[in-house]
Structure formats: structure tokens, C-alpha cells
Simulated assay, not measured.
Amino acid sequence: MLHKLYHRCCDGLGHREHLVRTWKLKGEFQIYNLHRGFFLFKFNNNEDCDTILEGSNYFFVGRPLILRRWEPGMAIEKLNLSTVPIWMRFPELNLSFWSAHCLSKIASKIGHPLYMDVQTTEASWLSYALVCIEVEAGIDLPNQIDIRTYLGVTHQKVEYEWRPSSCKECKSFSHASSSCLKKQAKENVKKE
């Protein structure tokens, strides 16, 4: 299984210990550091690999672990990711919006809501709500959203645990707009 890790400052050992605790595997696995944040996982139990790939989204240091099954001939640099899960935080959220239904509607203004953390679900930590959403490449992540109610408009601050860079031209998280070859080619054609 191929894994793209977007957090480069961790060592393989710490990464492995975290995954062992998170995945609760039946067998053993090896991690091979490829390059540019990519890792290859080799499992001695195929059921473990299938369970992980079918499981929910996994995060490490607040950033998603993007997992794909390895296939012969797979070009690692050309993996086209058009969506990624990210955690968004609503600090000082009005108590009247503190429900799964309301939070889902609010979060859907930015992306597709996936789930909330335990403290948000149980409303046990009310200083902010934490929601995981899936966002599309190329969209702008706003710092504030407007919530319309029968009482008027509320301006809600939005924070992100991680802001992924993406290309607006290709609609992909595989590279930033500033290094897009497609965009550069279009600009070169306009100059001619």
C-alpha cells in the first residue's frame, strides 16, 4: 500500500509507533521511505491492508494520511488527488448551532462533512467545534463564513489544522498553482 504523508518532520520510528496504536493490526508491517513524503507499507497479512484501506480517514499530527493500494507501474509523482480530508475548527461557536445537524450545514459551506471529534459530538468542550470535512482541490478556504438565521447573519470564524496547497488550474493536490506546468504552458502560449 502506498502512503503519502504530508508532514515531513516526523521520523519513521515515531510514525510506526503511532500507526501500530491506531491500526490495531493482526500481523506485522514494514515501512519503506520512498521520497518527497511518500512511504510504502508492506503487510504480511492481506486482511490488515484491506481493513485499513476500507477504514475511515487517518490523520497523523493533524494531517491526513492519503492511502492508495500500490499497483505495478504506478507513477508516484503523478498521483492525482482531487479531494483531501481536513479538520476545521469553529471557535466560540454560538450554542444554538451546537448540534450535528447545524454543524453539518455550516461545514458544508466549505466542503463535504465527514465526522466530528468526540468532544464536539458530546458537547463536552465548548470553546470550539471540530469537524472533519473533505475539500476539493482549488477552492479557497475562508477564514470566516456567514450563517443566516431568522435573527439575521452571524459571522463565524473558521480555523484549519492544516491548509493543503493545491492547483486551481488542474484541480489537484499533487502540486501548487505556482509550480503548475499546465498553467505555465498556457502563459507561454499567451506570450507568443
Score class of each variant (00 low, 15 high):
1 M>K: 07
5 L>V: 09
5 L>I: 04
7 H>I: 10
7 H>A: 01
8 R>I: 05
8 R>E: 04
10 C>K: 05
12 G>L: 12
13 L>W: 07
16 R>W: 02
17 E>Q: 14
18 H>G: 00
23 W>A: 05
24 K>E: 11
25 L>E: 02
26 K>N: 15
27 G>D: 14
32 Y>D: 05
36 R>C: 03
36 R>M: 07
38 F>V: 02
38 F>T: 01
38 F>I: 01
39 F>M: 11
43 F>N: 08
44 N>P: 00
45 N>T: 09
45 N>E: 14
45 N>Y: 11
46 N>M: 13
46 N>Y: 11
47 E>S: 11
51 T>M: 12
53 L>I: 14
53 L>Y: 08
57 N>I: 08
57 N>G: 10
58 Y>F: 13
58 Y>V: 11
58 Y>Q: 06
58 Y>K: 05
60 F>P: 02
61 V>P: 00
62 G>Y: 02
62 G>I: 06
62 G>P: 06
62 G>V: 09
64 P>G: 03
64 P>S: 15
64 P>E: 08
67 L>D: 06
68 R>V: 12
69 R>D: 04
70 W>F: 14
73 G>Y: 07
75 A>Y: 11
75 A>S: 08
77 E>C: 06
77 E>F: 07
78 K>I: 01
78 K>L: 11
78 K>G: 03
80 N>C: 12
80 N>Y: 15
81 L>G: 00
85 P>A: 14
88 M>H: 04
92 E>Q: 11
93 L>W: 09
93 L>E: 07
94 N>T: 06
97 F>I: 07
97 F>S: 01
99 S>E: 14
101 H>M: 11
104 S>V: 00
105 K>G: 10
105 K>Y: 09
106 I>T: 05
106 I>L: 04
106 I>A: 07
107 A>H: 06
108 S>A: 13
110 I>C: 02
111 G>H: 03
111 G>M: 08
114 L>V: 14
115 Y>I: 05
119 Q>A: 15
119 Q>D: 13
120 T>G: 04
128 Y>W: 15
131 V>C: 12
132 C>Q: 12
132 C>P: 07
133 I>G: 02
133 I>L: 03
139 I>E: 02
140 D>L: 14
140 D>K: 08
141 L>E: 02
141 L>W: 10
141 L>D: 01
143 N>W: 05
143 N>L: 15
144 Q>N: 04
144 Q>T: 12
145 I>A: 04
147 I>L: 01
148 R>P: 00
150 Y>K: 14
154 T>R: 01
155 H>D: 03
157 K>T: 12
157 K>E: 12
158 V>G: 05
163 R>V: 09
164 P>N: 04
164 P>H: 07
166 S>E: 04
166 S>D: 09
167 C>L: 09
169 E>I: 12
171 K>Y: 10
171 K>H: 15
172 S>N: 02
174 S>G: 09
175 H>N: 09
176 A>H: 15
177 S>R: 13
177 S>Y: 03
178 S>V: 13
180 C>D: 10
183 K>N: 13
184 Q>R: 13
184 Q>A: 13
187 E>L: 13
188 N>M: 02
189 V>A: 04
192 E>W: 05
